[in-house]
Amino acid sequence: MVRVLRSTILPAPLEAVWEILRDFNGHDQWHPAIATSQIERGQPADRVGCVRKFRLEDGAELREQLLTLSDADAAYSYCLLDTPVPLFNYVSHVRLIPVTDADHTYWQWEGQFDTRPEERDEMTELVGSGIYQAGFDAIRAQMGLEA
């Protein structure tokens, strides 16, 4: 199993970052790879078990299910149900922690998945840079924060 862990510190209060990230269906508003997103069956985006179906900018479609959501911990986890790329058994965890001496936010994004051995490096780079780092950069830009 492959494990990818990325983290960053945002010079913003945890509550402001959580307000954006908490919306499981809001990633099309900030992540550059996401063109459109919707929650299936009209369920609320914060209901554990809800499924988001989204289309990437390149036209690929994916489905992910919300597994956990904790406002107390400013954290959630989700899994991939359908994807055109070879990420199997993919589960991801997002967690925010306050950096109290500066009112900043530590953001950790971690994923585990299986893939074909010959695609391990490519999928690790896709997840680490194309999803996680691109997301950090996009939130930083959306919030008007310095890199």
Rank of each mutant, 00 (worst) to 15 (best):
G111K: 07
F136G: 08
F54E: 06
Q29K: 14
I9Y: 00
T68K: 09
H104C: 11
L80T: 03
Q65A: 05
A72D: 12
A74S: 08
P86A: 14
P98S: 03
I97V: 14
Q29A: 09
R63T: 05
E125V: 11
I39L: 07
K53I: 12
M143W: 01
P13D: 06
E119W: 13
Q142K: 15
W18C: 10
D73P: 00
I39T: 09
A141F: 01
A72I: 07
G144R: 03
P44T: 14
P44D: 15
D137Y: 03
V91Y: 02
D82N: 09
W30H: 01
D58G: 07
Y78W: 04
L96K: 05
D137Q: 14
Q142A: 09
H104F: 10
L80N: 01
P11R: 12
L81Q: 08
V48N: 05
E64S: 06
T124Y: 03
D73S: 05
M1K: 13
P13M: 11
A74V: 00
R22C: 03
L69C: 09
L10I: 03
W107I: 05
R120T: 15
Y106W: 14
H27G: 04
L67D: 05
D137A: 15
L10F: 08
A147K: 09
R3W: 05
Q65Y: 03
G130S: 11
A134V: 03
A35P: 01
P32S: 08
P117A: 14
Y132N: 09
P32Y: 06
A102C: 04
P32D: 05
G128A: 12
A72E: 15
D101V: 04
Q43I: 02
L126Q: 06
A74G: 00
Q142C: 04
E61C: 11
V51F: 09
P98H: 06
A147N: 11
D71K: 00
F54N: 05
H93M: 01
F136T: 08
W109D: 12
D137L: 12
A12K: 12
A12I: 11
R41Q: 11
L5Y: 10
L126E: 02
P32E: 03
L81I: 13
L66I: 03
E61L: 07
Y132S: 06
Y76M: 08
Y78P: 01
T68Y: 03
M123A: 08
D58S: 13
R41G: 05
T36L: 02
G130E: 10
M1T: 12
A75R: 14
W107G: 00
W18N: 10
V99L: 09
D58W: 07
P84G: 14
R120Q: 14
T105Y: 05
D46T: 06
A45T: 14
W18A: 10
V94T: 02
R3L: 15
L21R: 02
L126T: 10
D101Q: 07
L145Y: 04
L66Y: 01
L21E: 06
E64M: 01
L21Y: 02
F24C: 13
D82E: 15
Q112I: 13
A45D: 14
Y132M: 14
R116L: 15
W109P: 03
A147E: 09
V48E: 13
C50F: 11
A141T: 12
T8L: 10
L126P: 01
L69M: 11
F54G: 04
V127L: 10
G111I: 03
P98F: 02
A16M: 06
P13T: 07
I131E: 00
V51I: 15
L14K: 09
D137R: 11
V51L: 12
S77L: 02
L69F: 08
M143G: 01
